[in-house]
Computed example of a mutant assay.
Amino acid sequence: MRQGARLPQLVPALAAVAAVRTAHAPALSDELTRIGGTPPTTPSSTTETSATPPATPGATPAPAPAPPTPQEVVAALEHSADSAGRAAAGQSGYRAGLLASISAACTAAHTVTLAGQAP
């Protein structure tokens, strides 16, 4: 089966992964704020998110970037799991638990939810 033919079947799995990652984002942002760091800013639906100048009339717009392949998603989740796990090892209490939870969720996402999607 070609990979392109399999992509629609991945939509529910990718949506589940996105939901879990989205759920962790505010907890991580809140913890960064609590410890005095500045969480990364995320564009709101009312803010202009384009860093490119306005389009010139008659100009052809640049094509949208290609979405990541399933293999790239799995690799990113593996990297995130490893990074969060290493960070958790150096923490204690709530912070260690939050980072361990993120690591576990990323591991589950790439080993269970997206199992068999990367070579």
Rank of each mutant, 00 (worst) to 15 (best):
A100F: 09
G97W: 02
T33I: 10
P57I: 13
H110G: 00
V17D: 01
I35H: 04
A84C: 05
P39A: 15
P57Y: 13
T22Y: 07
R95H: 07
Q71K: 08
A100G: 12
P67A: 03
V20T: 07
P57F: 15
A100E: 11
A59H: 13
E72L: 04
S83Y: 09
P63W: 06
E31F: 07
S45D: 11
P8K: 06
A75S: 07
P70M: 07
S50D: 11
A100K: 14
G4P: 09
Q3S: 08
G90S: 14
R95G: 06
T69F: 01
P39N: 15
A13M: 10
P26G: 01
A81K: 14
P57G: 10
A108I: 00
G97Q: 05
Q3W: 06
V11E: 01
A81D: 09
A104M: 07
H79A: 14
P53C: 11
G90L: 14
G37Y: 10
T47M: 11
Q9A: 15
A62L: 13
E72D: 09
T22C: 12
V11Y: 01
G58Q: 06
E78S: 10
L14S: 03
A118M: 01
T46W: 12
L10M: 03
T111A: 04
P67G: 03
A62Y: 08
M1D: 09
P57N: 13
R6P: 00
V17H: 02
V73E: 04
V73I: 09
V74F: 02
T69G: 03
A84H: 08
R2H: 05
E72N: 02
A96Q: 05
G58F: 04
A100R: 14
P70G: 09
R2F: 04
S29K: 07
H79G: 07
